[in-house]
Amino acid sequence: MNSIISAFSKGIEKSGIDRKKISMPSDVPFNPDVVKALGVDYFQIPRGRAIAFGTGLKLGNPSLKVVPVAGDLMTLGGNHFVHGARRNMELLIICVNSFVYKKIAGKPIPSTQSAFSPYSTFEEPFNFPHLGNSCGAIYTARWTALHTEELADSVAEALHKHGLSVIEVLAPGPNYYTDIDSIELELLKFYHENSTIKNNEDPKNVAIVPDEKIIVGKFTDKERPTFIDSYNVQHSKILGDKFTPHGGKNG
């Protein structure tokens, strides 16, 4: 997790965006010192609700840059993700995929066991970039805890996107694993041996499949009106002068 946070911090630095304007609603618990170092406003919220909470932050103050960090995204927060992408709410979603579902040849992570699947996992996982893209997200990428430089670049780029961006990060979540300390180094080695960078790959081809290399990269980058853009256009058209556009151009 720490490598992701430092990559994230580097990404903010590169983007040139004022850290004070960044809000991170997250269902992944961050240490206060980490948040302090990041220099952002942090909200640890109930599981799965990061995107919905972020939607409120953004609509309440469109000048904020809102970066929901989601661990339970695709379970409890699945609906928020799908609809957030559909309405193209301007959010940068960092989706921390901690391998609770079937991943690599039936083994969640090399030489570790998931506490919730002592007999290994068997459920199919989501293909996040594909799901996000098909629901309307304008920017999709996937990196692992090993690809910190690329991750920082993606963060910097996506922070300037107007619309919903999703960056999937493959990393172990400490809650799920019985032996977190021993996995970090081995994991990086595993990512090194088992991942391949394919930028601009069609997201439908990037599902994580047992015994195949994990495809990482920046997959899609497009433009589409955000929720606030469409809200303003629609109401201006009908209400004319009676309507004051919300949040100016920044929406």
Binding site: F53, T55, G56, G60, N61, H80
Partner: peptide
């Protein structure tokens, strides 16, 4: 905003309050 569900509705409300 018509949210996707009631979880989303109340979460967005809380977010909006913290945005000021």
């Amino acid at each position: 905003i018509q949210m996707e569900d009631e979880f989303g509705s109340i979460s967005a409300v809380l977010g909006a309050v913290w945005s000021g």
